[in-house]
């Protein structure tokens, strides 16, 4: 996965709280292989219910949403749906923990902003697509002409910038893992399943 530091593109608002992973990708699509492309599944039912849905009016790279975005299940498919559609960054007051971890593993920024900043942006954006610029290095973005700061765990920021792959990263510690395993089961022999 390649990393990124700056991004320019259009942003749309999804002004709801609790846009959970079941909404982001309904369960019935999850038996599909990733090679099928998940972008068409993104918020499928919401888009079906609203032919004028912002995702269908604009080719956005950035989403501004309400609190607790991506709450719910661990399905990484919710991130695949966003990424395959073309979304690279979501700005919201809070995110589901597992979702946020999955996001960084797929190059998707989960940028945390204050409630009042989210409300201000949504008021400015309304139903239109606006210009957005993001700089991971400075932790600042300009959305709809508004300069804002966002919070992002420094580890996640570094990972997005470098495009790190954890398995490659962990390979350098393989000796320490082997040593740990032996000591761990020596100290806690009951931790090995019996049958």
């Amino acid at each position: 996965m390649s990393g990124w530091q700056t991004l320019t593109g259009s942003a749309i608002a999804l002004p709801e709280a609790n846009i959970d992973t079941d909404q982001l990708i309904p369960a019935r699509f999850m038996s599909q292989p990733r090679s099928a492309g998940y972008g068409g599944f993104l918020l499928y039912d919401a888009r079906q219910a609203n032919p004028d849905h912002p995702l269908d009016r604009h080719a956005a790279k950035v989403v501004v949403a309400g609190r607790n975005f991506g709450s719910g299940s661990s399905r990484e498919a919710a991130v695949y749906a966003l990424v395959d559609y073309g979304i690279r960054a979501v700005f919201a007051p809070s995110f589901g923990d597992i979702f946020a971890g999955n996001a960084v593993n797929n190059g998707l920024l989960t940028a945390q902003i204050d409630d009042d900043v989210a409300a201000l942006l949504m008021a400015r954006m309304a139903r239109t697509a606006v210009a957005a610029q993001i700089d991971l290095g400075t932790g600042r973005a300009t959305i709809a002409g508004q300069d804002i700061g966002f919070d992002l765990d420094p580890v996640r920021r570094q990972k997005l910038i470098n495009g790190w792959d954890d398995i490659d990263l962990t390979a350098q510690y393989s000796n320490r893992i082997t040593t740990f395993r032996a000591a761990h089961f020596a100290a806690h022999p009951w931790a090995m399943p019996t049958s």
Partner: peptide
């Protein structure tokens, strides 16, 4: 704790998980 597919892959490959 629950993990996503990338973490599942990492655990399958290394029997470890990165976590803060």
């Amino acid at each position: 704790f629950g993990v996503g597919a990338t973490e599942v892959t990492h655990i399958l490959a290394t029997q470890t998980v990165w976590q803060k």
